[in-house]
Design a protein around this nucleic acid. Structure first.
Lengths: 210, 210
DNA sequence: AAAACGCTCACATTATCATGTGGTTGTTTG
DNA sequence: CAAACAACCACATGATAATGTGAGCGTTTT
């Protein structure tokens, strides 16, 4: 029996969901609330397996509720429920430890399937949401910048610069003369098209060279 | 009719998949290949809707194949297929524009469903993969670092340092004396627990202060 | 009202960096 | 084989950064 806790401000939808879920074999809605004002206490009291959490609620909304729950409970499964698949909320929800993100227009059969999936450690997502997540992910990691063709030795020097080493320290660390360090750094500046240590360090991060 | 192109080195599995997919209503396998050596030409020649791409293949593997296709074609849907749900490959695949990532143990019925889902713009993922993706996502954005309590002025100075400004430039940019810049920077170093400009710049990036 | 803090400025010394010019090896590649 | 490049080292000079000590002024917090 999967124990479900429900957060949804619309009374009709809350009723409907309760009937649907509790009326199904193996599912039980412990309680339903119209906002997250006392979410921490409620979750602790009912100890559910899965929480269905609407995002748009008056008072403490779903994202804030999610944060509050996760502050003290990292095991209960939380499924975010929303009418919109807008970027910001998806990002927020996932960053704060939601286990899934589904649209309200999800057909009843699918919804039960998703709840079960969440309970067993899956990450149910409506197709449009999953697509968004992948897009976000790839956009974050695709700005991998150009290849500046730094040699191995140059990369090594740059790495040490980033770590705050002085030329002298780099020289002794790499067992080379300080003048060699200088010439490497000069090369690095040329290749990165920068004119100072700070810019080189900044660029190393921006373009994920280190 | 969804046109499918297949890349899979195991001849039996390739045959099996071809029969399964082509034998189903609305699906057709245009061709199957045992590696990605000529993937770009093949994709261009057959113009499929969906590509099923095995990851572990001799010669040019699936990830590399994915990259090659995406270099010139961002519309064809690519479903990665693998036996392992290991972190690195998932990450690589998604970062390089895969539309979905499913395990080979996926039951036939589900597989067809996934292909159809990919074709209509969805992002089919095996549950375990979806969970991994969410984990990666939240771990990436949760290291938001401590708050170092930098004052507005200090943040401003740090920002300019990151941009490669010298003390002199910062002074004239902020209309303050160079000695004031110095004292700000000294404060910044103390608050960030660093001892050099480079480390401060590095930390500014790592902890997303700028 | 005293303490704490942010912001400002000054002066001085040493360490480090940026830049230039020049050179020797050894490997890779057209 | 010659050219290109990576990696190494040297000497020199001016610019910049790091560090220390000290201080005035205004606002916020206790």
């Amino acid at each position: 029996m999967i124990k479900v806790l429900l957060y949804e401000d619309n009374p009709q939808l809350r009723e409907g969901l309760t009937m649907l879920i509790s009326g199904s074999e193996g599912f039980d809605v412990l309680a339903g609330f119209k906002n997250c004002n006392n979410v921490v206490e409620e979750v602790e009291a009912f100890n559910p397996d899965v929480i269905l959490m609407d995002i748009d609620m008056p008072g403490v909304n779903g994202i804030e509720g999610l944060k509050r729950i996760r502050a003290g409970n990292t095991t209960v499964k939380i499924l975010m429920l929303t009418v919109f698949d807008d970027n910001k909320n998806v990002f927020q929800a996932i960053s704060n430890g939601a286990n899934g993100y589904i649209l309200k227009k999800t057909p009843p059969g699918k919804l039960l399937e998703y709840i079960a999936e969440a309970q067993t450690g899956g990450a149910p997502m409506t197709a449009s949401i999953a697509t968004q997540v992948l897009k976000m992910f790839s956009s974050m990691n695709n700005e991998k910048g150009e290849d500046y063709h730094l040699s191995d030795r140059e990369k090594q020097v740059l790495q040490l610069l980033v770590d705050g080493f002085s030329y002298k320290m780099i020289a002794s660390d790499m067992f080379i003369a300080i003048d060699t360090v200088r010439s490497h750094i000069k090369k690095i500046y040329e290749k990165l098209h920068v004119n100072s240590k700070s810019e080189a360090v900044a660029k190393a991060f921006k373009d994920r060279i280190v």
